[in-house]
Lab assay of single mutants.
Amino acid sequence: DEVTIHLGDKTIRVDGLDKELLEILKELARRGADEEELRKEIERWER
């Protein structure tokens, strides 16, 4: 499953996201997290 996250004018595509992680990323994005913060969160989950 590829998920596309839209952040204002930026788009991040991620393969096979965990549903819980997806919810966390959506919440972070709502709070104004930037792409770098979201990537760090994704990397934390992948470990």
Rank of each mutant, 00 (worst) to 15 (best):
R47Q: 12
E35K: 04
K19V: 09
R44H: 07
A33I: 03
T11D: 10
R31Q: 08
I12Y: 03
H6L: 11
R39K: 09
I42D: 00
D9C: 07
D9I: 04
E43G: 05
E36Y: 15
H6N: 14
I5Q: 03
D18F: 05
E23S: 12
L28W: 04
E23V: 11
L38T: 01
E37I: 09
E43W: 05
L38V: 08
L25V: 03
L21R: 02
E43R: 06
R31K: 09
G16H: 13
K10F: 15
A29V: 12
A29L: 14
E27A: 14
E27T: 12
I42V: 04
G8S: 12
R47D: 07
L7Q: 04
V14I: 12
V14H: 04
L22Y: 11
R39E: 03
K19L: 12
V3E: 12
L21Y: 01
E20A: 14
T11I: 14
I5D: 03
D18C: 06
R47S: 14
R47A: 13
I42G: 00
L25C: 02
R44M: 10
L38D: 00
A29I: 15
I24C: 03
R44W: 09
R44P: 00
T4R: 07
L7K: 02
E37R: 12
V3W: 15
E35A: 10
I42L: 05
K26I: 14
E20M: 12
R44C: 08
H6W: 05
D18V: 09
D15R: 10
D34R: 08
R47N: 10
E46W: 15
W45G: 01
T4V: 15
E41W: 15
H6I: 13
R39Y: 13
R13T: 13
D15M: 02
D1I: 13
K19G: 07
V3R: 05
E2L: 12
K40W: 09
R39L: 13
E2R: 09
E23A: 13
E36L: 10
E27Q: 13
H6D: 12
A33C: 02
E43T: 04
E23K: 14
I5A: 03
E27G: 09
D9Y: 02
E36S: 10
L22N: 02
T11K: 08
V3C: 13
R30V: 04
A33V: 06
G32Q: 01
K26P: 00
D18G: 08
T11Q: 08
A33R: 02
L28H: 01
